[in-house]
Amino acid sequence: MTASTTTTPTTGTRTRRAPLWALKLVMSVTGMIWAFFVLVHLFGNLKIYFGAAGFDHYAHWLREIGYPLIPHEGVLWALRITLIVALVAHVTAAVLLLRRSREARGGVRARRTGSQMWFATFMLPTGLILLAFLVLHVFDMTLGVQPAAPADFTAATDGGSPAANLVASLSRPWAAIAYAVAMLAAAAHVAHGALLAVNDLGATGATVRRVAVWVGALAAIAILLGNASIPVAVLTGVLS
Rank of each mutant, 00 (worst) to 15 (best):
A132L: 15
H90A: 02
I70L: 15
M1R: 12
Y58R: 03
A178D: 04
L131T: 08
V29L: 15
D140I: 01
V138E: 13
N227H: 12
L218C: 10
A194E: 00
A222K: 03
E73P: 05
L136H: 05
R63V: 03
L239A: 07
R105F: 09
A164L: 11
H72F: 14
A186N: 06
K47P: 00
L195W: 10
G193S: 11
P231H: 03
G202C: 07
S240D: 09
A164Y: 09
L235Q: 09
V211Y: 12
V38F: 10
V29S: 08
R16F: 03
A104N: 00
R105P: 02
V38S: 04
A185Y: 02
A53K: 12
V38N: 05
A222R: 04
P173W: 07
R105K: 10
F119Q: 07
S28W: 12
P173C: 04
A178F: 05
P68M: 05
A93Q: 11
V190E: 01
A194C: 04
V29D: 09
L170E: 02
R210K: 09
A175N: 04
S161C: 12
R102C: 09
I70V: 10
A3N: 13
V145L: 15
A212H: 05
A222N: 02
A22I: 08
E73G: 01
P231A: 08
T154R: 15
S101V: 01
S4T: 00
A93R: 15
L201A: 08
A52V: 06
L136E: 04
T30G: 14
G216W: 00
W21I: 13
G54Q: 15
F50Q: 08
I81Q: 09
L62V: 09
L224Y: 02
R109F: 13
P68N: 05
Q116A: 11
L98A: 10
